[in-house]
Nucleic acid binder design. Structure first.
Length: 106
DNA sequence: CTTCTGACA
DNA sequence: TGTCAGGA
């Protein structure tokens, strides 16, 4: 099926390479080389937070795709979904903290 | 496309 | 435990 409501030949739109690059779940699954069912399992474990459209379809941004890649790498490293979830949480906390406060460097 | 349940390595 | 497969 591949529901792509976006991407209607809209060149006039600004093109932020991150956070707004939307992909269908099938495209994201193909990109990471896994099935759509696995992507849902990752989201259920809190490894990802894809934007949900009004239709209920998931929209995977480039950032989410990068996160998926990290998941695959950590999974190959021998970690389970729970361990990856912790890594993701800590990484997200660190990212937010870095943007909020001034880096304690010098 | 979504959700859930079941089975296999 | 994680992945694959089927049906609603």
């Amino acid at each position: 099926m591949i529901d792509r409501s976006k991407g209607s030949s809209n060149m006039s739109e600004a093109e932020p390479g991150r956070t707004r690059g939307v992909y269908g779940i099938s495209v994201a699954a193909d990109l990471v080389g896994t099935g759509v069912q696995n992507l849902r399992a990752y989201e259920a474990r809190g490894l990802l937070s894809p934007v949900r459209t009004a239709g209920g379809t998931r929209r995977y941004s480039a950032d989410d795709l990068d996160r998926l890649r990290r998941i695959c790498d950590l999974l190959d490293a021998g970690l389970n979904l729970a361990g990856i979830a912790m890594v993701m949480q800590l990484q997200d906390e660190n990212h937010q903290l870095r943007e909020q406060t001034t880096p304690p460097h010098q």
